Simulated assay, not measured.
Amino acid sequence: MHARHGEDYPPALSALLAAAHDQDGEQVTRSPYPVVDVANPWDLDSMLRIIAPGIEHADHQTGERRIAVMAHADGSWACATATGSERPTVHQGGPRRLWDVLDEIRAYWLQHGELPVRGARVRIMPDGRTRLARGMWRTTL
């Protein structure tokens, strides 16, 4: 959720989120992981916000059917749907494959038991950049 709004702030991605529900993707795959509400698991949400900032989410459940949609201002979007315990079908479009980014983070999480954002060392550089590091993982914001 964005902390502020107004004329000087990028508009919400509600139109792209809504459109993604009904679009056929440029790429259609099956994810090995269940549909997830990204905003609920703290580690997953935090890591995704560091790796791919600016993604907005919409999650819905009707009976056993779950839908998760991701969108970014660059025009990238993903929509994953699954019923019951089936593997989700994922439609993606735009310049980046947002669901693939999410699945890479989840694969790391499962392989290592946690994500590197938890417990990362933070260093704020004189030029204002923020560096995060934990083990072999490093990123600069």
Rank of each mutant, 00 (worst) to 15 (best):
G63E: 01
I67V: 15
L17G: 09
G54I: 01
T81G: 00
A80V: 00
M125W: 11
H2W: 15
E114V: 10
G25I: 03
E64P: 01
M125P: 10
L48W: 06
A107F: 11
I55R: 07
A133Y: 04
G63N: 01
L16V: 04
R106L: 09
L48S: 04
L16W: 04
V38P: 02
A78Y: 04
D59R: 01
S46I: 10
R66T: 01
G128M: 07
G6A: 07
L17N: 05
H57W: 13
G113L: 03
W109G: 06
R30Y: 02
R123Y: 12
W77T: 01
G54C: 02
A12H: 14
Q92E: 14
S46T: 13
I55T: 06
R66K: 10
G54M: 02
D59Y: 11
G128Y: 07
A80I: 00
R121L: 14
S46Q: 14
H72R: 10
P116K: 05
P53Y: 06
A15F: 10
I55W: 02
H2N: 15
L110R: 14
G75T: 05
L16M: 05
V117I: 13
T89L: 02
R106V: 05
E26M: 08
S85H: 06
W77Q: 03
A120C: 08
E64T: 08
A58L: 12
E114P: 10
D100C: 10
L115F: 05
H21F: 12
A73H: 13
P95W: 07
M1D: 15
A73T: 07
R106G: 03
E104C: 14
G25K: 02
I51Q: 11
H5T: 14
H72W: 03
E104S: 13
H72G: 06
G84Y: 00
L115N: 03
G6N: 06
Q92S: 09
L132N: 08
R129K: 14
P32R: 10
R96L: 13
W42Q: 13
V38W: 03
E26C: 04
L132K: 11
S14H: 14
I55S: 08
V90A: 01
R4F: 12
D8H: 15
V69S: 04
E64S: 08
M125N: 12
A52L: 14
N40M: 15
G63L: 01
A80G: 05
E64F: 06
H112W: 12
R134H: 13
A52V: 12
A107M: 11
R129Y: 10
N40Q: 15
E86Q: 03
D45L: 12
I50G: 08
H91N: 07
G113Y: 06
T130Q: 12
E114Q: 15
G54N: 06
R134N: 12
R65Y: 00
H21D: 09
Q92M: 10
A19V: 08
V36H: 02
S31G: 01
I51K: 11
E56Q: 12
L17Q: 02
L98Y: 07
V36K: 01
H72V: 09
M125H: 15
A39F: 08
L110H: 14
H91C: 02
R87W: 00
R118V: 13
D37T: 03
D127M: 04
E86C: 00
A68C: 09
Y108I: 10
V36F: 02
H112D: 09
D45F: 13
R87D: 00
G54F: 05
L132D: 08
G63D: 06
W77K: 04
M47D: 06
L44P: 04
H112I: 09
D24G: 12
T29V: 12
V90M: 01
L16K: 04
P95L: 08
